[in-house]
Structure formats: structure tokens, C-alpha cells
Write a protein that binds this DNA or RNA. Structure first.
Lengths: 128, 128
DNA sequence: AGGCTTTCGTTAGTGATACTAATGAGCTCG
DNA sequence: CGAGCTCATTAGTATCACTAACGAAAGCCT
């Protein structure tokens, strides 16, 4: 329940952005791990290929990413971010969480440490 | 990010239920706090009245809750759960999180304690 | 080599959740 | 009483997820 609440607050707090959180997440993956196929993107975020196709369509049709054919496997399509995409990703990640920053600043050191530990646990629970 | 991941996993893990998590959440509020107006429900979950109207429409049109006019204020509409609604809420809350239970069982006592503390912090951060 | 199966990506259709904006109905207060 | 506020609803839009069906490419097996 607590997780749901934080997530909802998180989304509503920056629904104003040009892209939704799933789309931004894809750009983050592309920046961190380099060009990826649709399949690997959908595996990374535990989403069906159909859903991921929709998300990357938003990205490509708005110029945040481009499709590149894989030369070694004709079935595969690699997605890579454009400079516009990287820019949006960076600025969204930077100022989109200012609300969260200020909330976290009001915590004690001990509390921040609890959150830090909990983060690892939550990642583990989410399954990667 | 960790919160997003857990939330997505949580939703996908029981998307099979009859109702979505927002709708179940409303039923939980109604059970805990008694009949509520649309406004108070939307305030509790930090959602606009328009969104909440849609959610309660799902509940009422499927027989999980009913509308009751407030005798003291003609503008207000109280929502209360039906027995069917309470039943669905209870069973969903009970067995819908079996995945989460088993994940948590695999943690150590200390880790569970961290999560427990983090829960309170997250609730505070979510603002409610 | 030819055919069956698997993998990959896409599209179509649906559902849940959220938002804004506009509207109408009912209170409240000067 | 009338102006302005509150409450609920509706309409329209966007995101994010799902399943199902499809075509194209690759792999495997006889």
C-alpha cells in the first residue's frame, strides 16, 4: 500500500513532463546499456513485447529514439536514443524528482539509511 | 525507481482480479472509514474528483458499491460498499498478495524490519 | 534442400487509471 | 435574493498495460 501511494504521488507530481514514466525509463535503459532490441527492453522492464512496442512507438514517432536494423539478425530491431531523447531523459530525471528530494531532505540520517537499505530489498523483491 | 518496479510487479501479478488496484483501494477505504463522499475519497487517494468519479462508476455499475444521497447536503453523494463489494475486497486483499508474501518470507528478520520502518517513511513521504 | 518450429517485432483491440475542462445542481454569505 | 463557492458528473484525451493474431526471419531436423 505504501509503495502504491508513493508511486502514484510520484507520477502525479510530474505528469506535466513531455513523456510518461515508462517512456523515460526506456530512455534511461538505452543510455545506460546502449542500443537494445525490443525483446531485451521488454524483458528488462518485465513487460510484454506488445506493450513495449507501443512505448517505443511513442519515442520514435516523437523523435526521441530511432530504429536501427541489426545487421546480424534480420528479425531484430535495435533502438537507440537521439540527442533530443538523451536531453529529455537527463532533464526529466534531474528536475522531475525535486519534490522527492525535498521530502528526503527532511528525514534524519538514520531514516535515510533505512530507505537506502529498503531500496535494495525492494529491487530484489521486484525481481531484478 | 525501486518503488516503480515493485509497483509494476505488484499490478501485473494480480491484474487477473476482477477489479483494478484503485478500485480495490476505494473499497478498502469504505470498509475502514465507512461511507464517504466522492470528494473525500478523491482527497484520500490524492486523485481528482473526475478520476474518482470514474472509479466509483466502475464499482457501482458492477454492484460493488451503491450511491446514497446525503440527507443534510443535496450536493453530496455517499458511497458505501455492498456485501459483494466487501467480499471481493477481502478475498483480493487476502490472496492477491501471495507472491509478495513468499518474497518477504525469504528475507531475514533484520531485512523485514528495515521494510517495516521504510513503510512508515514512504507513507509519510507520500503525504498522508 | 525443404519444411516445421521458434523467435522477433508489429498491429489491433481492450481495460484500468489518470488528467483537464465544462456543466449543472445545491449551499452560503453578504 | 443573487453571486460565488463546493460537489459531482460527463466528455475527451493520454499513458501504460494486456492478449491475440500476424508476417518475417532464423534455426533445426530429416
Amino acid at each position: 500500500m505504501a509503495v502504491s501511494r508513493v508511486y502514484r504521488r510520484f507520477r502525479s507530481e510530474r505528469a506535466r513532463g513531455e513523456l510518461g514514466d515508462a517512456a523515460i525509463g526506456v530512455l534511461t535503459q538505452l543510455r545506460k546499456k546502449g542500443p537494445q532490441t525490443l525483446k531485451s527492453l521488454s524483458d528488462l522492464t518485465h513487460v510484454t513485447p506488445g506493450s513495449m512496442s507501443q512505448t517505443v512507438n511513442r519515442l520514435t514517432s516523437d523523435g526521441y529514439a530511432i530504429r536501427v536494423s541489426d545487421p546480424t539478425d534480420g528479425r531484430k530491431v535495435l533502438f537507440e536514443p537521439t540527442s533530443k531523447g538523451l536531453e529529455v531523459e537527463a532533464s526529466t530525471m534531474a528536475q522531475g524528482v525535486s519534490w522527492l528530494d525535498s521530502e528526503i531532505e527532511q528525514l534524519t540520517d538514520a531514516e535515510r539509511d533505512v530507505l537506502k537499505q529498503a531500496t535494495d530489498l525492494l529491487k530484489r523483491i521486484a525481481g531484478s
